[in-house]
């Protein structure tokens, strides 16, 4: 492998890793607060891509306005799902909420098939993101280059929100102890809504970055990336935001190099084996805190 090719792969890996990281943050935050694997998160990501097609192709809205429309509608979708499918089950066993999440994922996939047909649709080109950049011998598109920057930027802003603001403090409290936080007068529902808003905002951002260099969108396009991002969140330690970002980058890099070595069939197998290995040897992940089990 030449140095140029190596750098090219590194860049591609970091780029896809950045997108995984953006989605993994959504998983990890929801899990940290609700103790729920939000199976629908990958499908929200897929719906965001269809919203973009809807805005740019069907209504011919310029991309910068479309982008904000996509972000707002994805956030609304996330809040709607939370209100209709998760909040009525807040006091029921964890298994029911998980079944509900699977149900929402099932519903979104079928809804997308119904509304937009199962055939792949072309994702609209965003001209600014598709320009080619050249650094010496390494050439790449703008989107590949700016994805990791956006991810790191989002991470810094998010950490600032969580460490410095009042709502961030409330989020930390809720994730430590749901019941006590409630007794201390924290508005649980507001905290959960904010969590979903942040998660869906990042999913919408990730969806634009993910689908721009890819040819098409189809109703099942979100399920596999969704699962991979969940693996990233578990790897980093579920509930930990920097952990999720690190996990995302790592999975993106590994996947790219496995594909580069000619084993592209097995890149997904690797991800799931990593999941099982992490769960076996260090279930709390890299940065997760160990919780004492109460009888």
């Amino acid at each position: 492998m030449t140095t140029t090719a190596f750098l090219q792969y590194c860049l591609a890996g970091i780029s896809i890793g950045g997108i995984y990281a953006l989605i993994a943050i959504g998983y990890t935050m929801v899990y940290g607060i609700l103790r729920l694997i939000n199976f629908a998160h990958g499908d929200i990501f897929m719906m965001a891509a269809y919203f973009m097609i809807f805005a740019m192709v069907d209504f011919m809205i310029p991309w910068y306005i479309s982008a904000s429309i996509v972000i707002i509608s994805t956030i609304l979708l996330g809040l709607l799902i939370e209100k209709l499918a998760y909040s009525p089950l807040r006091s029921s066993p964890r298994m029911s909420i998980m079944i509900s999440a699977i149900g929402v994922s099932f519903l979104l996939q079928n809804l997308a098939t119904y509304l937009f047909s199962a055939l792949p649709k072309q994702y609209p080109a965003i001209p600014v993101l598709n320009k080619t950049l050249t650094f010496g011998e390494v050439s790449t598109s703008v989107v590949t280059f700016i994805t990791p920057i956006i991810t790191i930027g989002a991470l810094i802003i998010l950490m600032a929100i969580i460490k410095k603001t009042k709502i961030g403090m409330a989020m930390r409290a809720v994730s430590k102890d749901f019941q006590t936080a409630k007794l201390m007068g924290i508005e649980i529902n507001t905290v959960i809504s904010v969590t979903f808003i942040i998660g869906c905002f990042l999913a919408a951002l990730g969806s634009m970055l993910y689908f721009t260099p890819r040819p098409s969108v189809f109703p099942l396009a979100g399920s596999l990336p969704g699962l991979k991002c969940f693996v990233a969140a578990v790897f980093g330690g579920i509930g930990s935001i920097p952990g999720a970002v690190l996990g995302g980058f790592l999975i993106g890099l590994c996947e790219t190099f496995i594909k580069a070595a000619g084993y592209s069939e097995f890149s997904d197998v690797f991800t799931f084996i990593l999941l099982i290995a992490v769960l076996m040897f260090r279930p709390t992940g890299l940065f997760g805190e160990t919780l004492a089990e109460k009888v």
Partner: peptide
């Protein structure tokens, strides 16, 4: 899937 959600 709506039936499933209603049942759940």
């Amino acid at each position: 899937s709506i039936i499933l959600m209603l049942v759940v």
